[in-house]
Simulated scan of single mutants.
Amino acid sequence: MPLPPAGYQAPPKPGVIPLRPLGLGEILDGAFQACRRNPLATFGTAILLQAVVALVTVLLFGNLLSSFEVFDSPNPSTDSLIGAFASLGVFASVAGVVTAVALLVLQGILVIPIARAVINQKTGFGQAWRLARGRILPLLGFGLLSFGLGTVGLALLVGISALAIAGLQEYSALLIIPLAIGAVVLMIWVSMKLVVAPAALMLEGTGPWTSIRRSWSLTRGNWWRTFGIVLLTSIIVSVIASVISTPLTFAVSLFLGFSTDASTAPDALDSLPVIAATQAITALFTAIGYAFQAGVTSLLYVDLRIRREGFDVVLMREHERAGTVPSDILPGGTGAFGHQPGGPA
């Protein structure tokens, strides 16, 4: 291993990462270390939000199972069938909205303890929520804006497809298939361009639209690197969560299945204990995975600002000013020693 040149001085590392452009391993390790140092603010917040999602899912699924009992009758009425499919639509819509909101809020709140860990500041559960509460509404506004833009894009895709079917008929697939593939590619590209927008919104105090522009600017020239890190993190989290949670879920389902009275007729609602238990296990490991992913995204934001704006100098100054005394400092723009983008470093 070659020795560093004479006079070389290692970059400072006040917190979980060295203050210089980061490598993949440093981002992954820094996210894990930040979560480990602030377990209640990171894992606790993630588990709380996932518990809400799991509870809503179980309650909605219980109602859905009751509605689907109509299929057990020999001659179900049309109104009963419509009601069953309406319940399915409500379940999918409400569960999807609750999950999306929980993930967005989680990603936004966890930016705070992760960023503070960069300058060696610990964050408690209540402190994280207190520092984030003033930014929750703008964060939800960002979510609504993103949803609106996505809805407009989907409407355009559906409209063009309908016109193609009407005009080209049997040849419409020649236009619709490439169009659908292009739409998926565009969605992935835009998602990566906006991946650090919640971090910018939470730390810099920007509005929804400004945070989109900030993310767009920060990821310029780093799209493939950002995509690779996000994709690799998602794969790692999915594999680990599946390997751990699948055997536990199977064991719980088997245990509860043997615990039920086999002499009674099976009823849809009898499966609710199994559903609740499996949802609890899934929510636990999903929450841990989401916390780690949010940590990676937060450090990716810090890394991009270091590369484009010399943010490492600002972070070092904020660490020195904060000292070892616990404070409410938010690195990035809204804290007592925060750096406004474009301002003097």
Rank of each mutant, 00 (worst) to 15 (best):
R220S: 05
S253L: 02
L64W: 03
L110R: 11
F32I: 15
T226A: 05
F71T: 12
G89C: 06
A115I: 07
N222T: 09
L179P: 05
T123I: 10
L24E: 12
V313D: 03
S327A: 03
T57R: 01
P39Y: 06
G221P: 00
F337G: 12
L174A: 13
G207C: 00
I236G: 03
I119S: 00
A262D: 03
G23I: 00
A183W: 08
T57M: 01
V252S: 03
I109N: 04
F43P: 07
N75G: 14
A200M: 03
L163R: 13
A291K: 01
A132K: 01
L168C: 07
I181Q: 04
L299Q: 07
A277H: 05
A336C: 00
R214Y: 05
G134V: 03
L256V: 05
F142G: 14
V58A: 06
Q107C: 12
V184W: 03
V302C: 12
A6K: 08
W189N: 06
L284Q: 05
L163A: 14
F85Q: 07
A162E: 13
L24G: 11
R130V: 02
T226S: 08
M202Y: 02
R220A: 06
G148D: 08
P21S: 05
E318H: 03
T42C: 14
L59E: 00
G134N: 10
P198W: 04
L299Y: 05
V94Y: 02
A345Q: 00
T45A: 15
A155T: 13
Q340I: 14
G153Q: 11
I188L: 04
E309G: 05
A283E: 06
G310D: 10
D72I: 11
V325W: 00
